[in-house]
Design a protein around this nucleic acid. Structure first.
Length: 457
RNA sequence: GAGAUUGUAGCUCAGUUGGUUAGAGCGUCAGAUUGUGGCUCUGAAGGCCGGGGGUUCGAAUCCCCUCAUUCUCCCCA
């Protein structure tokens, strides 16, 4: 028997971590609800058909597939063997696997909208916080099971949705006390750049290369653009574009000059200007920044794109999103545009840990430990404990009679701030001794007063 | 898929040119201490040295294979 272990890239979350993570989820959920978003949950597994072909060739490889049950039945053997040969040839076959684990939340959402568009009221605003699975090679900040936390609005082309999403980001990160830059750009601007650089068909190549700017620097980006077939003059123009700096207004002015009267570019710039102009005052610690170097890898984005950078820490983006046309077209229901954002909960956790932003009260568990000082004393303590519990105070009774020192140590280890002692003396006089561990102060209370009115500080 | 890294007690790690019975700190348990914790002292438990094979009189140590970990690239959150 080997030692028990976890599958690669998965984690257990112990009490402390769960509490901190729930704090993040709750904070974000409150903001989503405040803006009128409705919760949605979808199954951990989807039909393989639903997922395949939606994430590109690389993505398909990273989908966890589930082996069909019942392959051991003799009448299926021949068929299963034949189909397995096809799997070895790199094709996924229904006879072997017809279900797979959810790879992200967006495609299941699109599937849901396509299935229910008759019943939904548009625009439909939903949020979803669930784990997803990817057969990726794990490394720092990357797991095979991780949580996504998405909000999308579908069935509306209005820029008002983008504006709300900006404020959701700002509101949530402000509540979490994380200083952030909300970076925005527009795919239309990037498309215009591609047009100006002689190839609308090069848009994907350009975005992929630009997306790496942060990581590899301008020289390497130029190199990569060259490898992807762009001419020297075009690369220079892209370099000038990437070199735009200054205030939002100044950036937009420079871009205006660079784009000339390219129609697509003007449209993108107008959308960007609208959002920056209408955003108004954002909560302290958050700011909205036009960032033309922002590209985002996913190529289904068509309009505004977002990315969140935490300030003061070395960390990749902790959120992102954008506008897409016709997400449900893949499922046979055309003309439902949408815009969505995502929070990277695992990275948000790391940032908050590093900046020490979790509030003290997140860790509250048991408030009061009743000492167990004997059979009769224990019974009396149990009765008092139930009274306090009925008043909503979390308490525990030490599980067996034991020496003081042991019970004190238990309280300390578990971070319980108060202990209540009811021994023979107290029982006889109808009292209860309550001690605060952090200060060492204790007081003797009448049992009735203690049960009716005691509160932890 | 490619490259690197590390596997020794529950945890973090020592372990000499290959040499007798593999160590430390922390943690756990017991005692000093039968109604007042944190400190201190004493003691105990806890190991197929990741697994398999090889070299050798002798392997935690050297070689090969394998599994696992962590990190980087690709891609992504």
């Amino acid at each position: 028997m080997s030692k028990p272990s976890l599958p690669q890239g998965t984690r257990d979350f112990s009490a402390q971590v769960v509490r901190k993570r729930s704090y993040i989820f709750q904070t974000i959920r409150q903001v989503f609800e405040l803006y009128g978003f409705q919760p949605l949950e979808t199954p951990a597994m989807e039909n393989l058909d639903t997922l395949m072909g939606k994430y590109g060739e690389e993505g398909d490889k990273l989908i966890f597939k589930i082996l069909n049950n019942g392959l051991d039945r003799p009448e299926k053997h021949e068929k299963a063997r034949a189909e397995f040969e096809k799997v070895l040839a790199g094709r996924n076959v229904k006879e072997i696997t017809e279900r797979a684990l959810r790879y992200d939340l967006t495609i299941p959402f699109a599937r849901y909208v396509a299935m229910n568009h008759g019943q939904l009221t548009f625009p439909f605003k939903r949020y979803q916080m669930q784990p997803v699975w990817r057969a990726d090679r794990p490394q720092k900040g990357r797991y095979r099971e991780f949580y996504q936390c998405d909000a999308d609005v579908v069935g509306s082309n209005s820029l008002l949705n983008e504006l709300e999403l900006v404020h959701i980001y700002a509101g949530a990160f402000s509540k979490l006390k994380i200083p952030v830059e909300i970076r925005i750009n527009n795919r239309k601007i990037l498309a215009a750049l591609a047009e100006l650089c002689g190839g609308a068909d090069k848009l994907t190549d350009i975005t992929i290369a630009i997306d790496k700017l942060d990581k590899i620097g301008i020289d390497k980006v130029r190199e990569e653009l060259g490898q992807r077939g762009l001419q020297e003059g075009q690369i220079d123009q892209i370099s000038r574009y990437l070199g735009i700096e200054g205030s939002n207004q100044h950036k937009m002015d420079q871009l205006q000059a660079l784009l000339g009267n390219n129609a697509l570019g003007q449209a993108g710039l107008a959308e960007l200007a609208y959002l920056i102009g209408e955003a108004g005052t954002l909560p302290a610690g958050t700011q909205l920044v036009a960032d033309f170097t922002l590209a985002r890898g996913l190529n289904y984005y068509t309009g505004t794109i977002f990315e969140i950078k935490a300030m003061g820490v070395q960390m990749g983006s902790i959120g992102g999103g954008g506008r897409y046309d016709d997400l449900t077209g893949l499922f046979g229901v055309p003309n439902i545009p949408g815009v969505g954002i995502s929070f990277g909960v695992d990275r948000i956790y790391d940032v908050m840990e590093e900046l020490n932003l979790f509030p003290e009260e997140v860790q509250t568990g048991t408030r009061l430990l009743f000492f167990n000082l004997g059979a009769a004393e224990g019974s009396a303590s149990f009765r008092s404990m139930q009274v306090l519990r009925s008043r909503g105070i979390a308490c525990e009774l030490y599980h067996e009679p034991a020496k003081f020192d042991k019970q004190f140590k238990y309280a300390e280890k578990k971070g319980i701030p108060y202990v209540a002692m009811m021994g023979a003396q107290e029982l006889a006089t109808g009292k209860c001794v309550v001690k605060q561990l952090s200060t060492g102060t204790q007081e003797t209370l009448d049992l009735s007063a203690f049960e009716a009115g005691w509160q932890p500080a």
